[in-house]
Amino acid sequence: MQVAITVNGQTYERDVEPRLLLVHFLREVLDLTGTKVGCDTSQCGSCTVHLDGVALKSCTMLAVQADGREVTTIEGLAQNGELHPMQESFWEHHGLQCGFCTPGMIMASTAFLQQNAEPTEAEIRHNLEGNICRCTGYQNIVRAVQAAANGGDG
């Protein structure tokens, strides 16, 4: 099937199998491998991207369902060579170790702050429930999101 999907501001027209998941479209067709696959049951959140500005696990959607829509991936978050404040905050507050869950964590957290600009610690933790990290024990991820919400001062 023909699709036209805008990813990180650029529109890609491709012929895809109907069963192709959006995450595989990004990784295999467009070579945007920053988005990760960590499970096969939509639990881990490593594949989180933005679809029309809303966080979405890209393993839960077919590429054909994204036809005509706008996707932002981790590769598209920094603008004009400047890291997004959430990326800076994860770096500054050691919110990552192996880095595999990190793109999903950052994409989920940026979308979350757009909905809730001043979250409590409990709200941040609750929102991260759909993203699993095995390395950090979450504490510095929570700290990074808090700091990003506070404009960078944790």
């Binding site: 945007l32 491998t33 920053g34 978050l77 920094a78 890291l83």
Partner: peptide
């Protein structure tokens, strides 16, 4: 000193290459 990590820029931007990312 708790300096920030030097491995992070590639990891927070999606530029790191894990095995399945290599083609």
């Amino acid at each position: 000193s708790g300096i920030r990590r030097r491995e992070d820029p590639r990891l927070i931007t999606g530029n790191a290459r894990y095995t399945d990312d290599i083609k």
